[in-house]
C-alpha cells in the first residue's frame, strides 16, 4: 500500500532542514549538521542526539536510507554512515514545502508578510 507523504506532516524545523540538507546528495551525520548550520547562518544548530533521533525516525519511515556507496576509504573515515533521500522522502520534503507555501500565502493575504519580498 502506497503511503501518503502528508501522513508525516508537519515536520519540525530541524527535520525539514535535514531533508533539505540531503536534497542535493548523500551526506554523513556531521556533514548534515554543518550544512544546516551554514544554510541557517548558525540559527539552527543540530546536536548529535537530536540529529540521530531524526535520522532514526526517517529511516524507520522510509524517508531516508543508509547509502551503500561509500567514497574512497582513503578520502573519508570508513566508520561514517552516509544517508540519502528516498523517492518517498523527496515527496515528503516537497509536501512540507508545499504546506509551508500555503501557510505563507495565508499570512501574506492578511498582510502579515510584505508582498514581493524575496523569501
Amino acid at each position: 500500500m502506497k503511503r501518503r507523504p502528508e501522513a508525516l506532516l508537519p515536520l519540525t524545523p530541524p527535520m525539514f532542514q535535514v531533508l533539505i540538507a540531503l536534497a542535493d546528495g548523500e551526506k554523513h551525520g556531521y556533514a548534515i549538521i554543518k550544512e544546516v548550520a551554514r544554510r541557517t547562518g548558525g540559527a539552527e544548530q543540530l546536536r548529535a542526539g537530536t540529529l540521530y533521533t531524526i535520522i532514526r525516525r526517517f529511516v524507520q519511515e522510509g524517508v531516508i536510507v543508509e547509502s551503500d556507496q561509500r567514497p574512497d576509504p582513503a578520502l573519508d573515515d570508513e566508520r561514517r554512515h552516509y544517508y540519502r533521500l528516498t523517492d518517498f522522502g523527496r515527496e515528503v520534503a516537497r509536501a512540507e514545502g508545499q504546506r509551508m507555501q500555503t501557510v505563507l500565502g495565508m499570512a501574506r493575504a492578511k498582510n502579515l508578510i510584505p508582498r514581493g519580498r524575496p523569501a
Binding site: 554523513h28 551525520g29 548529535a48 542526539g49 540521530y52 532514526r56 566508520r79 561514517r80 554512515h81
Partner: peptide
C-alpha cells in the same frame, strides 16, 4: 541514557559526530 536500540544502531555515529564537534 538513550534506549538500548538507539545506542546500538547510532551510538558510534553519534560519538563520531561529537568527536568532530
Amino acid at each position: 541514557l538513550l534506549p538500548f536500540d538507539m545506542r546500538t544502531d547510532y551510538g558510534r555515529d553519534m560519538e563520531q559526530v561529537f568527536r568532530e564537534e
